[in-house]
Structure formats: structure tokens, C-alpha cells
Design a protein around this nucleic acid. Structure first.
Length: 585
RNA sequence: CGGGGUGUAGCUUAGCCUGGUAGAGCGCCUGGUUUGGGACCAGGAGGUCGCAGGUUCGAAUCCUGUCGCCCCGACCA
């Protein structure tokens, strides 16, 4: 039981100017956090309590799933990262942790870095400590601080540079085992998000820089989220934008037969899809082939899409490149023979075909069949180009960005789209990390194999804010019972009245017997101030004790977010409060 | 890193265009009156106007640079 007058809950009437979204404003106004710098926050006592509760529930669910808790350093020798498979892309967001010293070593490669996650630390550990199939499988987890020099911290705890994360790593003997570990973790995640009161849904996700074979993201639907989720409730399909597929191209659709002989025609100055759509050409965008040149790990390659489609860059990851960027016009011209705007992938028109690592076509171009594309000659295009007869294609794949309304790939129902906050992510990694550092075990036939790994993360601090974003009203936060900083607020309107204070003490004790964390507002403030603060803090159950009620022999009980106030007789109030709490908890 | 914005008291801000003693509300301190939805009165403390240069008799205000922060883009838990 804590007394507000002796605790520390600095609430604010007005929002700080730099908080834009409701959850960020409420974090600050309700006295949960204060900003130290961009993406850096102090957890005040209330915020700290919520973090502790979320962490505890997370720990319980991880342990229930069989995962084993440990704790790794935050500071890592940089060589562990340099030896790992993703140093190149990841180092850009890593802080260096070298001696502040006299600034003498600033330009050198770092000796020490701050951990953004721990695959590069735990894989060598397991390599050294686990050598037999008898010790598998194992899943380890920890809950702690991560450091990422995000290019753009945002929205308070939503994307911070220092944040709290639960990270877990599974090691299995084989692929089936890894899938079992993955599914166990997925179930643990679902239980965790349910318990903390977050309405998170699992969606298929891209594996990104993490690599690996498949993955799910856990998303809290919210307008302020920066992920697009495509879904259909009836079919149960859900995926994020990077991964989402649609069934606009029927299975096994045959490419239309050629209709005419291909022919070149002049298109002076036409370098966009839109210009070719316009008079005098009048070629609809969905009858055009768009040819894009990218550089993947230093090698150029081409992607063909319908003119009306956009490339979903993340989907290029399926081609196996780790560093991707669009090619520059200077890089393109010597290879293709033309500048962007006149490119095509028609056989024999590419000037230096061997320079291309491949020509990858989106399935949807089969819907076009015969269309128009660039001639690899500035100012000329080709019409009556047939996908099968004329285009030089290495392989087909899914590269386009899908749109809401397209049929979902499971049942063909229209896909809907909404925004979401990513609060958790699970990856089936495979052997990407174990192979890199040759981490493996010996089986019962004395054969050596690589560990098949999975890795898993839950943003603890981000979950905190996502819950607020999902559960608030115009007056303040509405905490789910399980993670509320306090579950019961005893609102003592006349702290000077010893009779009222006595009742308050008894009710607070009763609430604690019921299993609640109790805060007593014993401040010398006017009732209006206390009520406003109570709503702002969002403690689930408020018990109000005031002179007016006591004269009638009653106290009041009100659930945050509920419209009605329950009046209960003082004599039965202790039993009623205790019972109400037991029922809720 | 590109684009846009912003920096004045603990918080929210006015003043800046058109240079001339830095103002308000909240919060805080003292006293009094109040006390069921952010009270009222009286008094008070608190600001080298982000920082550094420059222009000027004079700069919060104009110019240059720099730093911080916020928002939009690519990335992430």
C-alpha cells in the first residue's frame, strides 16, 4: 500500500509540446516517464511498476513454455559482430561503447559496441557449451535493455534508442525440432499478449536482415502504427505489407499466346508509365511491362513488373541478396543500353546481358500476356511483346506490393488493410548463424550437425505504450488489471477527517487481502483534482470515501471506464471490495 | 541521411514579420477564504529568449554557422 502524498506521481494538466500521439502524451501526463533525450526515457515509479509487471508476466509465460532465463552483457566486443553474418547492415544502428577517453580513437573501428540484440553472443556460447544431441533442444531467454541508434526515434517509447526487450533463442537438432520450438514460442507469445491485455494478432512477416526461413510479427492494431497489415477475418489470413500475397494471379495461369509480331515504335521523351498511357500512345498501365534495375550485394539484376504495380522492395529479399539498392542511371546505361524510362527485358535488346545476375519477373505480368515495354533505346518502346516468347526471364516470383481489396491467397476474399504496432517478432532462423561460426553438435551416430535456430523478441516498453494507445479515453489511461501500476485507488476526499481515514485504511487493507496493489490518495487536494488525476492514471478500481457518503453510511466503488458508480454500505464495504477484486483478478 | 518545422521560467505559450526596459496561464512559495469533477483573493520567487559569431547606438526580433528537439520518408521490438 502506498500513500500518494509520500509517493512520487508528477501528473501534468497540459501535454508537453513534443508529444503527438495519445499514448505518448498520457505516458508523460500521467507521470509514467520523462524524457532524457531523443529516444531516451526515465521510467518514473509508476512507469517502472508497469514495466515490472509486464516483465514478470513475460517471464512466467516464457518459463511455462520451457525456456530458460539467463542474462548476457550489454557491452559486446565488436569482433563477435564482425564475425557474424550481418555486421554490414546492422552496424549502422549500433552504438559504440569505447572509452570516452580523450576522443583519440573516434575514427577507428570500435572495440566495443552496445548490444542491439544477442544472436552474436549466444550462438558462440552455445557452440562452446553444447556439443551433444542429448542437450538439445534448448531455448534461452532474457529480459533487458537493448541499444539501437535508430535513425529516427519516434513517439516516446514506441521507437526508442534504449528500450526493454525480451529476447529468446532456440537451438534444435533438426528442422522439425526448430519448428516445434517456434510454435511453442508462438503459443507463449499469444498467452503473454492475452494476459497483459494487448489485442495483438500474429501476421506473416518478412525476415529482413535477421534472415531465416519464416517468421510472424505480433501486431497491435492502431492508427499510429507504422506497419500495414493485410488481413481477412473470415479466412484468417494476415500478413504485413512486406510479406502479403494476393490471389490476383490464378494458380497455373497460362501465358497468353503471341498475338502479333513484336515491333518497335518511337516514343520521344516518354520515360514514365503515365506518359505512355497518355495520348497519342494510349497504352494502359496494366498493359505495360516495367523494368527496374537493382544492385544486390554489388551485382545488378532486373525486376519486371506490370506498369500499374509497385515494387515491394522487401520481397526482393527472397532472391538471397542481403544489401539491396536501386541502381543509378550511370550504372544502368552501360548494361541496358538506355536510360531509365526506356528499359526492357526483351531478348537480344539488353546490351550487356551477362552483367545481370538475373532477370526476375513478378507473376502478375502473366496477366498482361502481350504488352509494351522499353526497347533499351532511348526514345523507343516495343509493342506486342509476349511474356513467353520475347522476355528474357530467369525466374518468376512475388515482388509486387499488394493493394486492399485484392483476393486473399487462402479463400479469395477481399483483403482489408489497417495499421499496426509491431510488439513482437518470432523468426525461424535455420542455420544462418550456426553455419557462420560453425556451431553444432554430435548426434547418436557420431555425425556432426549444425544447430537449427530460432530467435524471438518482445518489445516490453513498446508493449506498455501500445496498451495505452489501445486502451484510453479522453480523460486518461484505462489500464488492464494485470499490468496496472496499482489496481485499486482509494480516493480519500477528506484526509483530515480521522473517521474517513480509518475507513480508507480498512478498505485499502481489504483490497490488499484480495490481492490488489493499492494506492491511497491522501493528498490535501480538492476533490476535483483527485478525480481528474484518478481518471488520468487509469487505475482500474476507484474507491471513494468522502464526508458526503459517510454521512449516508456509504462509500463508492467505480471501475475505470464504467459509467455507473456503485454505492455500498460502509459495514459491508470491506467484504464487497475484497470480493470484487478476487472476482476480477 | 534527405525534406519540413521548432527552440522564450518546471509545463503550455505571447512577443519575432515592422529591432528600443521579456509578458501571460498552469505549476511552485506565503497568508486568507474555500472543499464531490482541474477553486478564489492578496502577495512572492523564478528567464544571460538553445549556443557561437555577425550587422547595429541598441538584437528574443535581422544575417551566418552550429546544436537539440518534433514531424514526413527507408529501418526496427
Amino acid at each position: 500500500m502506498r500513500f500518494w502524498s509520500r509517493y512520487f506521481i508528477p501528473t501534468l494538466k497540459e501535454s508537453p509540446a513534443d508529444a503527438e500521439i495519445p499514448s505518448h502524451r498520457l505516458l508523460i501526463r500521467a507521470g509514467l516517464v520523462r524524457k532524457l533525450g531523443g529516444g531516451l526515457y526515465t521510467y518514473l515509479p509508476l512507469g517502472h511498476r508497469v514495466m515490472q509487471k509486464i516483465s514478470r508476466i513475460c517471464r512466467e509465460e516464457m518459463e511455462r513454455s520451457g525456456a530458460i532465463e539467463l542474462s548476457m552483457p550489454h557491452i559486446h566486443p565488436a569482433e563477435f559482430w564482425a564475425d557474424g553474418p550481418r555486421w554490414g547492415p546492422v552496424r549502422e544502428i549500433m552504438f559504440r561503447a569505447d572509452s570516452a577517453g580523450a576522443g583519440k580513437r573516434g575514427q577507428k573501428e570500435p572495440d566495443l559496441v552496445l548490444g542491439p540484440t544477442h544472436e552474436e553472443v549466444i550462438t558462440p556460447l552455445v557452440k562452446a557449451e553444447i556439443t551433444s544431441y542429448r542437450d538439445l533442444p534448448k531455448t534461452f531467454f532474457q529480459i533487458g535493455t537493448k541499444f539501437r541508434n535508430e535513425i529516427r526515434p519516434r513517439y516516446g517509447l514506441m521507437r526508442a534508442r534504449e528500450f526493454s526487450m525480451m529476447d529468446a533463442y532456440s537451438f534444435d537438432a533438426d528442422d522439425q525440432g526448430a519448428t516445434r520450438s517456434y510454435l511453442a514460442m508462438k503459443a507463449a507469445y499469444e498467452a503473454f499478449f492475452r494476459r497483459v491485455g494487448a489485442q495483438a494478432i500474429a501476421v506473416e512477416a518478412d525476415t529482413g536482415v535477421m534472415g531465416g526461413s519464416f517468421s510472424h510479427e505480433f501486431m497491435v492494431p492502431a492508427e499510429v502504427g507504422d506497419n500495414d497489415l493485410f488481413y481477412n477475418e473470415e479466412s484468417g489470413y494476415a500478413a504485413n505489407r512486406e510479406k502479403a500475397r494476393s490471389a490476383i494471379v490464378p494458380e497455373g495461369l497460362a501465358v497468353a499466346a503471341p498475338e502479333h509480331a513484336m515491333e518497335e515504335f518511337p516514343t520521344p521523351g516518354v520515360v514514365t508509365i503515365a506518359a505512355l498511357e497518355a495520348a497519342p500512345y494510349g497504352v494502359p498501365a496494366d498493359r505495360q511491362f516495367k523494368t527496374l534495375i537493382y544492385i544486390g550485394d554489388g551485382r545488378p539484376f532486373a525486376v519486371i513488373l506490370r506498369g500499374c504495380d509497385d515494387l515491394e522492395e522487401a520481397k526482393l529479399g527472397s532472391l538471397g541478396f542481403t544489401l539491396l539498392r536501386p541502381a543509378t542511371p550511370e550504372e544502368i546505361e552501360p548494361i541496358m543500353g538506355a536510360k531509365p524510362g526506356s528499359l526492357g527485358a526483351v531478348r537480344d535488346t539488353v546490351r550487356n546481358l551477362p552483367a545481370l545476375a538475373g532477370i526476375y519477373a513478378d507473376h502478375a505480368i502473366r496477366l498482361v500476356g502481350n504488352g509494351t515495354t522499353g526497347a533499351n533505346r532511348d526514345g523507343f518502346h516495343l509493342r506486342h511483346v509476349n511474356v513467353a516468347r520475347d522476355l528474357q526471364i530467369t525466374s518468376f516470383g512475388d515482388f509486387r506490393r499488394i493493394c486492399a481489396g485484392e483476393p486473399d491467397p487462402v479463400g479469395g476474399r477481399p483483403l482489408k488493410v489497417r495499421r499496426g504496432i509491431e510488439v513482437g517478432h518470432i523468426f525461424k532462423l535455420g542455420t544462418k548463424y550456426s553455419e557462420r561460426i560453425d556451431a553444432g553438435y554430435t548426434d547418436d551416430k557420431k555425425q556432426r550437425h549444425l544447430f537449427v535456430m530460432g530467435c524471438y523478441g518482445i518489445g516490453i516498453s513498446r508493449t506498455l505504450q501500445a496498451v495505452i494507445e489501445q486502451s484510453h479515453d479522453g480523460d486518461g489511461i484505462i489500464w488492464p488489471w494485470a499490468i496496472a501500476p496499482f489496481q485499486v485507488l482509494v480516493c480519500l476526499l477528506d484526509p483530515q477527517d480521522s473517521g474517513a481515514a480509518l475507513v480508507a485504511g480498512r478498505l485499502a487493507a481489504a483490497a490488499e487481502r484480495g490481492g490488489a496493489d493499492v494506492l491511497v490518495d491522501d493528498r490535501n487536494e480538492r476533490p476535483g483534482v483527485k478525480f481528474k488525476d484518478a481518471d488520468l492514471l487509469g487505475i482500474p478500481l476507484r474507491i471513494t470515501i468522502g464526508g458526503r457518503g459517510l454521512r449516508e453510511g456509504i462509500v463508492e466503488m467505480r471501475w475505470r471506464g464504467a459509467a455507473e458508480t456503485l454505492k455500498i454500505a460502509v459495514d459491508e464495504s470491506e467484504a464487497r471490495v475484497e470480493a470484487a477484486i478476487r472476482e476480477r483478478a
